[in-house]
Each structure stands twice: as structure tokens, then as C-alpha cells.
Design a protein around this nucleic acid. Structure first.
Lengths: 202, 202
DNA sequence: TGAGCCATGTAAATAGTTACATGATTAA
DNA sequence: TTAATCATGTAACTATTTACATGGCTCA
């Protein structure tokens, strides 16, 4: 259901084609909710069937065609209802922590490599989130600018504040994960002083 | 695939029935990988079919029966291979942060209630994780005791250290989420001074 | 004898992943 | 004219959720 609402959130701002939405999932909303093209296209058609969206086929070039989706009043209401509904918390399902709990079954070298890879991966997504914050602060955030253009001036500050707040939380969480990976690397170095003497943990 | 490996991890220590495994998912491994009974029972049968487990039907009482699963050598090897394999990172899919990004569409009251509920929920799972740490430190952790009984004495320290390390990370991450919720409550109070004047954010 | 837990499941639906398939447009 | 990117999908599979179904055991 969240994919549907993530799509509605984007379409609250402006109509878009499936392709635009799929690409946008690689940047703005994709930072909090990933979805591949192959999930987006069918979902959009279902949403149109359910009356949440209106689909309009737009020709382009000689023979090209694309489908522009715009949100209907039913779609707007559905999104607002979701925003007011209680969330059900996702249960924990975390491969990296599951694995770390059983590191004694792995070789220290592999454990170390995995922590390094996890730290690197986390740093990368953290950088992407931080960039969103920087762009919001600099006033160069394209997604935010689009959103603000549909909102009365008096609400601009709040709208920007919520977006920034969201990314702050993600950056802080990533920071905790990076610190955790660092502690793990340190722990490995302490527990296996000989095997890991060659590589520096940091 | 992680469910399978979470089950293998438990069965590396000792044979268990489906019921035992399902219950254990409510405490030890369930802290990092949740799975309902209805997913566990079929998965165990599939794993037995694949030769990773041996199933033995054990009668109990007059007509009762249960199925004890023990890990086979193929199962042990499969688990070790998984432990050495690279993890593919789960994409971000986070309903609470998705929602927070669009809080301007919710009423400040509902936004506040949702942050309070999220903080409370996070505190609860954090407390469960912290309890695991306390039990490890006190030497009263039943799951750890079971694990240690199958491991040479020289490895006890390391085994305990990895378990503790895992839960430390989860506690720290929860701490970051709680701090984020606090910042959100503060932000709401600042953005909507009149509407929220009645309730204290903390 | 009834409540609560032990024990194992099935069915149906939804969600998500991976790999593949097809063709058009645009700019170098 | 070819590479990149625009544009939309299908098929097959795996994972997960939700709700339901069945019956035995144990203790008060």
C-alpha cells in the first residue's frame, strides 16, 4: 500500500508519466521508498482502474506514445486518509544485523570485508540524503521547488521543514550504522589480532 | 533466503520442532528477523526436501505428534556459504520516513500522534534489545548459553562479543530514531504553536 | 469441563524481485 | 548511424501477510 501512496504523493504535486515517476523514484521519493519500473507501471494502471488517477495517452514524435497520469479528487482523498491513518510498524528484518549476530561462523577476513562493504554502502546513501538537505538549504532542490509551487507562500516554511526533517533523520540513522560498523571493525581487530594484522580497520 | 538462514542459524545449535523455532522467533532471532508461524512451517518442510534438514516425527501424549528438525551436513555447509557470501543491500522502504516527508498534508495533531506512537514503539523494541544485552552481560542469556554449549571454551568470548555487538547496534539505531521523533515533536510545536499548545511534546 | 497453551498447518492475497522484450526518439 | 536514453511493459518467481482450520495436552 505504501508504493501506492508514494506515487500519490508525487502526483499530488503535478501530473506525470510512468517513466517520469519511475525516474523520480531513483532520486527524491526513491530515497525513502524504492520501487523498480516493473512494479510502478502495473501499479499505475491499477490505480487508474480504481479511480485514483486519470490516464491520458499523449503522442510524442512520429509514433511514440506515453501515458500521463494525473491524480483525481478520489486520489487526493485517498492520500489524505492514508496520511491520517495509523501506521503499522514493519517487523524487523535486517540481513546485516542477522549476519553480524553469527560472525563467529565466518572467517574474520570475511567478517571484516562485510563490515567494510556495509560501511561504504551506508556512507553512500548517507551522502545522497545529505545532498538533499544541502539542496533544500541552498534553495536548489528541484523536488521541493515543484512542491512549493503548489502551496501557498505561508506554508513554504513548513513544507520545507518537514522535508528537511525527514532527511535529517535518515542521515542520523546512517551515522549510527556507520559508527556500529566502526565498532565492529575494532572488535574484530581485538578478537583476531594476528589474522587481521595486515589491514587497517579504518 | 534470509529466513532460511535464520532458521539454519538456530538449528546449528540444536535440533528443534517447528513450534520451538516459531516461538524462538518471538525472542532471540526474532529480534533481527521476524517471521510468522505460517511462513516457518512450510519453509522447514522445503528445507527438509532440499536436504538441509532431517525431519523426525516424535509422538507426544496419546495421539499428539511433533516434528523435530535437525540440521544436516549439507545444511551446515549451506549456512557457512551464506555467511561467507556478499550481502545485497536492501533498498530503502520506510513507511514512517515516507510519511514524515509529507507531514504538511496531515493535521498537526495527527502528525504529533504518529510521532508519539513511533517513539513509543521504538522505545519498546529498544528495551527488548537492551534486555538481551543485559542478559548477555549477566550471564543469564538462555540463547547464548545454548550456543556456548556447542562451542569450545576458547571461543566463548568471541561468540558472546558478536551477539552483544549486534544488539548494541540495534539499540544505538533505535536511539537515533527516538531522537529523531523528539526533534519532530519539537518542530511541530514550533510550526503550530496554537494548535498544539494543549499537549506537551515530551 | 473449560481455558490456555501446544502443535501443525492451508488458502488466498499482496508485495516485491529479476530477467527479459520491444520499440521510438534524440543528439553526436 | 549508432549510442544513449525515453517509454512501456510481461513472465516467472520468491517472499510475506492475513486469516482461518484443526486438534491435542495440561491443569485448575
Amino acid at each position: 500500500m505504501s508504493l501506492r501512496n508514494a506515487l500519490l504523493a508525487l502526483l499530488m504535486v503535478e501530473p506525470m508519466t510512468g517513466y517520469d515517476l519511475a525516474k523520480r523514484f531513483g532520486s527524491s521519493v526513491g530515497n525513502v521508498w524504492h520501487a523498480p519500473d516493473s512494479q510502478i507501471y502495473p501499479e499505475l494502471r491499477r490505480m487508474a482502474q480504481d479511480g485514483l488517477l486519470e490516464a491520458e495517452e499523449v503522442p510524442f514524435g512520429r509514433k511514440g506514445r506515453k501515458i500521463a497520469y494525473s491524480i483525481t479528487e478520489a486520489g487526493r482523498q485517498s492520500f489524505r486518509e492514508w496520511m491520517d491513518s495509523d501506521l503499522q510498524w514493519a517487523r524487523d528484518r535486517d540481513p546485516m544485523h542477522l549476519r553480524a549476530a553469527y560472525f563467529e561462523y565466518a572467517s574474520p577476513q570475511r567478517a571484516r570485508e562485510q563490515l567494510l562493504a556495509y560501511r561504504e554502502h551506508t556512507r553512500q546513501i548517507q551522502a545522497a540524503w545529505q545532498q538533499q538537505i544541502d539542496e533544500i538549504d541552498a534553495g536548489t532542490s528541484a523536488p521541493l521547488a515543484r512542491r512549493l509551487s503548489t502551496v501557498p507562500e505561508a506554508e513554504h516554511h513548513r513544507t520545507a521543514a518537514f522535508k528537511r526533517f525527514t532527511y535529517e533523520g535518515l542521515v542520523a540513522r546512517a551515522e549510527a550504522e556507520i559508527a556500529w560498523a566502526d565498532r565492529g571493525l575494532q572488535l574484530l581487530a581485538e578478537l583476531y589480532p594476528e589474522q587481521l594484522s595486515a589491514g587497517s580497520p579504518a
